[in-house]
Design a protein around this nucleic acid. Structure first.
Lengths: 198, 198, 198, 198
DNA sequence: TATGAATGAGCCTTCATTCAT
DNA sequence: AATGAATGAAGGCTCATTCAT
């Protein structure tokens, strides 16, 4: 009956936020976000009750998008190196294609403007992927390898890989391969240290 | 800048900043910093012309401190794994001993309140360490391994290691070993991918 | 203004306003009013062009309701104490029965969000009652007693009486009697001071 | 050492607030207050941490001022009508001399922007005066007359008296006398209704 | 007519920085 | 040099009102 809430506007606000958070951190003002999104300052608050709510929604959205991409295509199915590399390639491709999203996601994950509960909720998006990852990892790093720890390291090496690709875009595939080799080699190192009681 | 009288006050301001940035990010107000440092609000600005100047000085100071620690003790001198592990141990020990410093350093490195020129300048502090690192790395990852890339990954794995140690303080030594194994294994993986022209 | 369709909605808006103004003052937002009334935000403005118009209409309505009540039942007709006490009892009964209306009326009478012209207009609602009051008063306080002055005092003592009854509901009748005694005694005092030329 | 906090500025802010609250209610903006006081917007908050704190301080200050005035001069000492009239005269004189203060005080007493705890605290300022009032009242209205109730009525009649004086300034003394006669007569009426158990 | 999204002025408050003392 | 009061530009958010549906 009334003017319907516009998905388009919501998206515009989110995209503006992605761009600004990537460039200037979560300290960007809602006024700048509104301006960049092409809406009135007040409109931001009809779509997100609070700046915190906006940032939280953005974190969940980005993690959801990434998680979906990891799982979209069928896995090779070897339950080992190839499955893992499949994930790795998806991760790198997404990050390289969406550098500002990646940067924003990274910032949101450590921002004090996003409540811990949201961060926890966001990790849940990766539960499904984590199962596959765990299976593949078990072969390379032993049954009791810690997935969370492996995940953080995978992320970190991906990070370094993005940087390298950003500096040398034409070496993209090589760098992607190399990054995985590092990760996979690291996981092998992990296996040699025996089990831990955490 | 002719250093104002009291070195003590300068240090107090820096320490207060470390604590507050670790806890609340670079958004902390200069007023809070002054209060925690036990000086008047205006005094902050006789030691640092600007909040940006304060944060920049802090970044350089922390990176200097860390760089010094890496080089303080004599190296084993094998120009390989042991030299590298020596660095690794220094890095982890410093981070575990000074968690707020580590956290603050991490935040400053990505803060939009610190100009890029400072960030570049800060990396220079590690030039000397990088030389040693390069030599050691050459053996494990090949002559043309990229130090910057390796450095970023080392940092990342260290980060994951801190988290793990923070959660399980009594496993500190085991986790330190494991972290290094991962790093070293990763570097081995690096070598297998052939040379890159970057 | 051609009254919009639903008298029911108009009433709902007014009632919602009564409740909210009593609780939170004339600063309450039109959005809250709409919500409490169960209508859309915009609907408030099809019934009342302006928030000011809404509050003004409410003031007039409440004063009208109270004035009607004062006159509804037949007076004892002694043109003295009994007529006056009849009014007093109506007034107190209405206030005790409708505490939020009373509270809202009180607030509207001094709100800067209601124009003076409306306040004046509202007083006109009591003209008829004032005639009776004047006659009754003449006996107790002299021919030239000032009705406006007496009215204000009556109101004030009623106010104090409401408070007392709110604190001690079971003493209602006694307090009502006592309040009138105070008022009537005061009017006697008034007569002793001789006439005034106002 | 630093620029000392200026009592003058604090007073300017308070006076500006008195004027604006009298004219427009407690909804007045801190920006307007600052402007009228001739200070920067931020300065308001170096003297009062919060708008609520400002209004609260103002309420306590005004009640304190009024309470002091009631007690300043020596009482006639008859412990009856004359003592009471002494209070009455002080009250009326203050209100007539400071109409905006009176108006502001009235508004603050019912504002939802002042916490109840402050209101309670404010009433305490009148404790000393209340003792005298109670004694005088006992003679006219009986031993068990309720002081709070009497106080409210006194206030209310004073209110009506101010209005009348504002309309007819040259009748000031006569109206003051008349107002007291009404109050005193009302208290006599009170005595006739017998005791209440509240 | 009813709806509620859209608007932008305005609100209270915080903050980096300046400056009188 | 040290202090902290003074400043005014933002900042996040609310609100009365308008307008597309």
């Amino acid at each position: 009956m009334a003017r319907p809430a516009s998905e388009e506007k919501r998206t515009a606000i989110m995209n503006a936020t992605i761009g600004l958070v990537a460039a200037a951190g979560t300290g960007t003002s809602t006024a700048k976000i509104a301006k960049k999104a092409g809406v009135a300052e007040g409109t931001v608050f009809t779509y997100f009750s609070t700046k915190e709510a906006l940032l939280s929604a953005l974190l969940l959205e980005l993690e959801g998008e990434l998680a979906d991409i990891l799982l979209k295509d069928p896995l090779p199915g070897d339950e080992g190196r190839e499955d893992m590399q499949h994930f790795w390639n998806r991760l790198i491709d997404w990050g390289v294609t969406n550098p500002t999203k990646w940067r924003t996601l990274k910032r949101l994950k450590i921002s004090s403007q996003v409540p811990d509960s949201i961060r926890t909720q966001g990790e849940r998006r990766f539960d499904e992927a984590a199962v596959v990852l765990a299976r593949a990892l078990a072969r390379q790093a032993g049954e009791d390898a810690n997935i969370r720890y492996a995940g953080i390291i995978m992320n970190a090496i991906a990070e370094a890989t993005f940087d390298a690709i950003a500096d040398n875009p034409n070496q993209r595939e090589t760098l992607k391969l190399r990054g995985f080799a590092v990760f996979w080699g690291g996981m092998a190192g992990l296996s040699q240290e025996g089990s831990l009681t955490l």
